[in-house]
């Protein structure tokens, strides 16, 4: 019975030891070395499994120890348990890539300055390494497959569109372009003479413009001389004086017009008075009528009155003929 128990114990313990030690050994844990854990952030980790190898310059220095999405979901945090006695580069970054075509992925610690084209994830914590995951082969092949499909589609369309008729039309187009080119060349030859004449005209016009410019220059010089000599200032002063004279003349004219109106009123009342005298003469009343009983005197008086009436009317209509105004 005792012997049975020992053998059973040996088998069980041996199997447990083999399983446990073997598992740890295959996972890369070694009792002889201490490990330290560094962390890196990635935008994605592809197919990197927990426990994948971590390499530096191609040498395995540790294992991936924990993969978790950040709480805000914007990145993936990967723990790397690496040998404590390994010195990492000063600008260390972590690159995740397939190690072969068969799905085994690994992480490699690289110098970031040696990989300037890679778009590493930028961690806000300086103690966390930046990381970048290379697209896996399946994505690349899927993209290549898509490109191939697009090329096939384009090829099919070209094949459908580029028929014999299209080729013939294309040949005709090329011939037409050739003919057009020849005509353009002939037209250019014919236009050369006209162009030369145009150039001569332009040259003549240029000379004339040049002369005009010289004249304008001289004129401007003269104007400048006048301006610099104070003549303009004198003219401006005279103009100011003249304007004052005009203003004074306008005032006098307004006053003269007012006097003229008074004169007309006087003349009108005089005429009324003359008409009254005339009526007395016609009726034979008053001294003057008696004096004018003589028909000759009366006739002459009548004539004088008529002329006076005409004179007053003419004066009313053309006062300028009788009143002369002089400014200077």
């Amino acid at each position: 019975m005792r012997r049975n128990e020992v053998w059973v114990g040996v088998v069980i313990l041996l199997s447990v030891v083999v399983a446990v030690v073997g598992s740890f050994w295959l996972r890369g844990y070694r009792l002889t070395r201490g490990t330290t854990t560094v962390e890196a952030l990635f935008s994605g980790v592809g197919q990197l499994p927990d426990g994948a190898s971590v390499k530096l310059r191609g040498v395995t220095i540790g294992r991936v120890n924990g993969i978790a999405v950040e709480p805000d979901g914007t990145a993936v945090r990967v723990g790397l348990a690496i040998n404590a006695d390994v010195q990492l580069p000063a600008d260390a970054a972590v690159l995740i890539a397939p190690e072969s075509m068969f799905g085994d992925w690994g992480a490699e610690i690289v110098s970031r300055s040696a990989n300037p084209r890679l778009d590493f994830f930028e961690p806000s914590d300086p103690g966390v390494l930046p990381g970048f995951s290379i697209p896996d082969l399946s994505r690349l092949t899927a993209t290549a497959d898509e490109i191939a499909d697009n090329l096939a589609t384009i090829t099919d369309r070209v094949e459908v569109a580029f028929t014999q008729e299209t080729a013939e039309n294309l040949r005709l187009v090329i011939e037409n372009v050739g003919r057009v080119s020849e005509q353009v060349a002939e037209l250019a030859d014919a236009q050369i003479g006209a162009v030369e004449e145009l150039v001569d005209n332009v040259r003549t016009s240029t000379r004339e413009v040049e002369a005009a410019a010289a004249l304008a220059t001289r004129t401007l010089g003269e104007v400048e001389r006048l301006l610099s000599g104070g003549v303009v200032d004198s003219i401006v002063g005279d103009t100011r004086v003249t304007a004052a004279e005009f203003r004074r003349l306008a005032t006098d004219l307004r006053e003269t017009t007012t006097g003229l109106s008074t004169t007309l009123q006087y003349a009108d009342s005089t005429l009324v008075r003359f008409e009254r005298i005339g009526r007395e003469l016609e009726t034979g009343e008053g001294t003057l009528a008696h004096l004018l009983a003589d028909s000759t005197v009366a006739v002459q008086t009548q004539s004088v009155l008529t002329q006076l009436t005409l004179l007053l009317e003419d004066f009313r209509e053309n006062p300028g003929r009788y009143v002369r105004l002089s400014i200077f």
Binding site: I12, L14, V18, A19
Partner: peptide
């Protein structure tokens, strides 16, 4: 139940 896993682990190893 106890010995089958033990024998299996040894055999696999």
């Amino acid at each position: 139940a106890v010995m089958f896993p033990a024998v299996t682990l040894l055999a696999s190893s």
